[in-house]
Design a protein around this nucleic acid. Sequence first.
RNA 1: GCUGCUGUGGCUCAGAGGUAGAGCACGUCCUUGGUAAGGACGAGGCCGCGGGUUCAAUUCCCGCCAGCAGCUCCA
Length: 638
Amino acid sequence: MAATIRVTLPDGKVLEPERGVNLGVLARTIAISLGKKAIAAVVDGTVMDLHRSLDADAKVRFVTEADPEAQDVVRHSCAHLLAQAVKRLYPEAKFGVGPVIENGFYYDMELPRQLEPEDLEKIEAEMKAAAAADFPLSRSVLSREAALAWANERHDPYKRELIEGLAADASISFYTQGEFTDLCTGPHVPSTGRIKHFKLLSIAGAYWRGDEKRPMLQRIYGTAFVDAKSLEEHLKAREEAVRRDHRKVGKELGLFMFHPLAPASPFFMPKGAWLYNALIAYVRSLYVEFGYQEVITPQIFATELFKISGHYDNYKENMYFTEAEDREFGVKPMNCPAHALMFAGKGRSYRELPLRFADFGRLHRFERSGVVAGLTRVRTFAQDDGHIFMAPESIGAEIENCFALQRRIYKDLGLPDPTVLVGTRPAKSVGSDELWKKAESTLFEQLDRLGQKYTLNPGDGAFYGPKIDFQVRDAIGRAWQLSTFQLDFNLGERFDLHFNAQDGTVKRPVVVHRAMLGSLERFIGVYLEHTAGSLPLWLSPVQVKVVPVAEEVLPYARDVGARLQAAGLRVEVDDRTDKMGAKIRDASLEKVPYILVLGARERDTGAVAVRARGAGDQGAQPFEAFLARLLGEVAAKS
RNA sequence: GCUGCUGUGGCUCAGAGGUAGAGCACGUCCUUGGUAAGGACGAGGCCGCGGGUUCAAUUCCCGCCAGCAGCUCCA
């Protein structure tokens, strides 16, 4: 065995250090400054700590603060720093897991008492002290027995359970910083002093191992960044998220309200109802072009229907039931069984297929009290729902058609390109293995055919078939699920649907369930957060606010308002006796796209002085020019 | 559903064991003002609901309802 190994650096340079060389030492060999800056190393594609040694030829790239891998390493080490601080303050603490998550990290723990927000400050101070001590992190590997002994010595049942879950022959790694040791696969920063920019954010309950039957631990959320600026920006974005909260925006703009007598059920007030109906009208306008036929179906069905569809077995605890004349009825939680009945309502020919039913019907789902939130999770809602009944050979074309419609809608609404997630068969499902296999493979085939990139979400399908979910990120980077396409080979079986094929045989249709906006309620919530309430002109409940400079010009203001209204625009004339400045302020806070300030000058020249949202005073222009501009913007959905 | 927190006029929020306040909004009047808050006066509250402790509870305790954060769930 050679005494040296070959280490290839990113620039292609090859070093030949001794076998077993320490990565930190290697970094310092390359350059003193690199030794100081390095946080970790990527060895043959795997991120490792600097105190690991190299025993074989490898490609090595050192990670510094400038590299994308650094953030996760720092965050994970910060979770350890948190645990160290907590252990110092509460020696009885038992620890669960402390992973890195999208915007930071958390650590689950069992503590002698419930933490309060002020405790976070104390813990953070202790973390700063441990970071200032700049403890080096050292890694050690123990056998399973030794690891279990460690957990037992700490009387920590959670760590014990984690170790028990590892393979019998696994080599189990531990990291030690100062007096604190934790079970962990790493990697970590070389020393605690490298964790500089962090903040603890919140305390919450979380079930051990995510299982609601197991104990609830206290979870501390925090975040950490490699530089101060990123931390500051992240904290600002959190504040921005609060400012854009759709519940707040909806209240401020007078769009909707809630009432304790109808929990989790929004009341859309006139402006909100206008927006709601405008979205439906917009989707409806595309249905002609995309070949859908809108239907209207009952609200309440005899329970047998949901037994046939499988919803009764899978979701009855989330349904509303009622009884009349000794018969049990259920309020529909989705439209598909109704559409299945409509499909079966007459003999069907291949000539009618694909048959695309659209339905904006109201749905009710009893959501558990702890899961409801604003408009994003409600108990009564409507979807821009649709079910496509088709021959199996049409699946490709229909999925393509769905993608085309989805792209069109996102473009018109100014939504970014979504992330596509594919969910496969869940634990709780109906239908045979063959049907599922067929449905899943068909879906993957079609996605590949369309060249659509996606992320696999195993087990996340609907109970009747695999699904494609579309996630969009809003203006400040949060992910929301809106559209969904679901492929269903089961509905046809359960409702014994069939059609006469061209070759004279009787065939079973396949069904695609799809919604583009998803729930109208959730869509409005997400869209308000995305736009911060500044809706595009074509979707603004009030497009123009007319502000007379003084009462004297009120007649002209009314005349301008009436003429805009006659042209199809939505206008309000502010005829209150307040000062002009106050009216401009109020209209601005209402996020009205255009404010027209009208005084004697405008009246005498037949002009309007325009103030555009976000752009301030645009000066005077002829009425006709302004009208043409607005109509153009509405038509272009800009 | 679980853990924790919160609930005071339409809204945002102070407050304290001795029966309640501010700003905004609202009403009336004055002001007729040129691009983000003119002024005066006024009306408006079962201090979420139900129990308990207390001479006295909106305030402390318990339960319920609703909301918020997170977990679990989401056809």
